[in-house]
Amino acid sequence: MAAFTLKINGREHQIDVDPNTPLLWAIRDNVGLTGTKYGCGVAQCGACTVHLDGQTLRSCSLPVSAVGKSEVTTIEGLNSKEGGAVQKAWAALDVPQCGYCQSGQIMSATALLELNPKPSDQDIDLAMNGNLCRCATYVRIRAAIHAAAKSLEG
């Protein structure tokens, strides 16, 4: 066990855990933010996607000891204009079915738009193919990313 200070959504959290604890489980079980989901534990499904200093990260596969001073953003702390546009587009198109993967989808889609305000279908494929959706809401995810990009054109 060891003490760590995690900066999540702009707040610092002190936790005392096994240094090998994946960031995902620290966020969920120790910090108590449950919007970030467990789906596979081996960085294959993307349900656990968060932002680490603005980049997407599979939080199930990074030990808490490796986070250091990096800033973590979870779905609960998503407040960029791109994030808002993505969430609005998700609602407009009723993207979610079971919804369990959607926090991860939205984190990946937001990071894409923050980097690339007008992604092509190929850009979307590249940015989103690490996020599985067993309900296969992919048609609407793609359409919603395009809609969010359009809404950000102003």
Partner: peptide
Amino acid sequence: VKRLDTIAKSNGTAEYTLDIH
């Protein structure tokens, strides 16, 4: 109509069994 569960499923607040603490 719009789905009643979309908003909670787009902002992390929808509660699933794994989220029970």
